[in-house]
Simulated scan of single mutants.
Amino acid sequence: MDRTVLRSDGVWIAVTDLGGDGPTVVLLHGLAGSSRELLPTAHALSGYRVLLVDQRGHGASTRLPDDLSRDAFVGDVVAVIEELVPGRRATLVGQSMGAHTAFLVAAARPDLVEGLVMLEGHVAGNGDPGEAAGLGSYFESWPVPFEDEAAARGFLGDDAIVNAWVADLLQTDDGLVPRFDASVMQRTIEAVHEPRWQEWEALQVPTLAVFAKHGMFGDADKDELVRRRPETERVDLADGSHDAHLDAFDEWTDVLHHWLSRDQTGPLRPSGR
Score class of each variant (00 low, 15 high):
Asp17Met: 10
Val25Leu: 11
Val26Tyr: 12
Leu31Asn: 13
His43Ala: 15
Ser46Cys: 10
Arg49Thr: 05
Thr62Phe: 07
Leu68Asn: 13
Arg70Tyr: 01
Val78Arg: 07
Glu83Val: 13
Leu84Trp: 08
Val85Ala: 12
Gly94Asp: 05
Gly98Phe: 07
Thr101Val: 15
Glu114Asn: 15
Glu114Ile: 03
Met118His: 06
Gly121Lys: 08
Gly121Ala: 11
Asn126His: 13
Gly130Pro: 03
Gly130Ala: 14
Ala133Pro: 01
Leu135Val: 15
Phe139Asn: 02
Pro143Trp: 08
Pro145Phe: 11
Glu149Arg: 15
Ala150Ser: 14
Asp168Leu: 04
Asp168Glu: 10
Leu169Val: 12
Asp173Leu: 10
Gly175Asp: 13
Leu176Trp: 12
Val177His: 01
Ala182Arg: 08
Ser183Ala: 14
Thr188Ile: 03
Ile189Ala: 00
Val192Pro: 00
Glu194Leu: 13
Pro195Phe: 04
Leu203Trp: 04
Gln204Pro: 01
Val205Pro: 07
Leu208Arg: 05
Val210Gly: 02
Phe211Cys: 00
Phe217Ala: 01
Ala220Cys: 00
Asp221Leu: 06
Glu224Gln: 08
Glu233Gly: 07
Arg234Asp: 04
Leu237Arg: 05
Ala238Pro: 01
Ala244Ser: 14
Phe249Tyr: 15
Glu251Pro: 04
Trp252Gln: 05
Thr253Asn: 09
His257Ile: 11
His258Phe: 10
Trp259Ser: 14
Arg262Val: 11
Asp263Met: 13
Asp263Gly: 14
Leu268Tyr: 11
Pro270Gln: 06
